[in-house]
């Protein structure tokens, strides 16, 4: 295709992506370097019969005017990145100095907002992803063994948790595990502890969010693997059977290697989606127990009447860096593949 025609064909989509994905990233970068103006203070001297007094008051009008004139705020350099609610270098160094070993270092780190969010996000991503891969494969093999008539029904049911809006799906589960909901109440009966509440305990809340994540994304890996299973070469299976391999050995040595390219595709998708975990925390109203990087950004933006753009932007930049680090292996591999094909 000629360069000119290519340009006209790609123009609408490219414009949309540049304007609303690339430029916002630039805008985030710029915003993160600025910080809101301080309030303008006026010192007025009032002299009375008992001498003069200095009073400091906030000049609201001047503050508003200044904020109006320069909505970005004043330049702060990388200050926001290293402040207490982000990388908090000073605090981390302090905790490191006073703690003995990793055992007391980590809890100290959990007191810092940004690290708390990052630790949750990483824990979530790296527990949900492997669980979903393994369970998805197991369910796919199971469904593949089912009679044909039942497979369609199984896929239909499986698609529900995946396609329902995350916020709606997690709301449904959150009602069920509520202390008065069916699962919550049953758990209280089983453990005979009427005060047991998933929503009141941090470890239980983390487990609940991870369980939700598995419930929500398992269908994706299941369906991809199920489609892959349909393409396993029959003669290789036959050959393995003739050679005396049992079902388990065939599975490990024939089926799994055949699915390997799918595994890396599914892993990539899961990592991307799990890293931005956001809605379940809102639906479970779990902000007190678990913050992810995304909810951290959202809570800064929602700050009543006075959104903390600088703080939100700095977290966003750090999150984007995280995404890029996560994707680097994939990008390098695709680049190598492309070059190999080109030569």
């Amino acid at each position: 295709m000629k360069h000119r025609t290519f340009f006209w064909f790609i123009l609408p989509t490219l414009t949309a992506m540049i304007l609303f994905i690339a430029l916002p990233i630039v805008s985030v970068m710029i915003q993160s370097l600025f910080v809101q103006h301080e309030q303008v203070l006026v010192i007025s001297k009032s002299c009375g019969p008992f001498g003069c007094q200095e009073t400091t008051s906030i000049d609201t009008e001047a503050t508003a005017a200044l904020r109006e004139a320069q909505p970005l705020g004043r330049f702060n350099g990388l200050g926001t990145y290293f402040d207490r609610s982000h990388l908090a270098t000073a605090e981390v160094a302090e905790i490191w100095r006073t703690s003995e070993g990793l055992g007391s270092f980590l809890p100290g780190l959990m007191d810092l907002k940004f690290y708390k969010a990052m630790i949750f996000t990483l824990t979530y991503t790296f527990t949900v992803t492997p669980l979903v891969l393994i369970l998805g494969l197991a369910v796919a093999v199971g469904v593949n063994n089912l009679p044909n008539a039942l497979r369609g029904v199984a896929i239909f049911i499986s698609l529900l948790p995946f396609l329902v809006a995350t916020i709606v799906g997690s709301m449904i589960l959150s009602w069920m595990v509520d202390g008065e909901g069916i699962i919550g109440a049953t758990l209280q009966n089983i453990f005979n502890d009427p005060t047991l509440s998933i929503k009141a305990s941090t470890p239980l809340m983390w487990i609940m969010l991870i369980v939700y994540g598995v419930w929500h994304t398992l269908p994706f890996s299941f369906i991809t693997f199920y489609a892959g299973l349909q393409t396993v070469p029959q003669d290789t299976l036959e050959a393995a059977r003739v050679d005396g391999a049992n079902k388990w050995q065939t599975m490990i040595n024939v089926v799994v290697p055949h699915l390997m390219p799918l595994v890396s595709f599914v892993t990539l998708m899961l990592l991307m989606d799990n890293f931005r975990v956001f809605e379940p925390i809102i639906s479970f109203q779990a902000e007190a127990h678990a913050q992810s990087l995304s909810t951290f950004i959202q809570s800064d933006l929602k700050e009543a009447g006075n959104p903390l753009y600088a703080s939100a932007s700095a977290t966003s930049m750090l999150t984007i860096i995280g995404v890029v680090i996560l994707l680097t292996p994939v990008l390098i591999r695709t680049w190598r593949d492309f070059n190999r094909k080109a030569h």
Binding site: I25, S27, Q298, I320
Partner: peptide, 12 residues
């Protein structure tokens, strides 16, 4: 792969 909320903080 961009988390949508990071973009939103650029739009606001």
């Amino acid at each position: 792969a961009m988390p949508h909320i990071t973009l939103v903080s650029g739009y606001m």
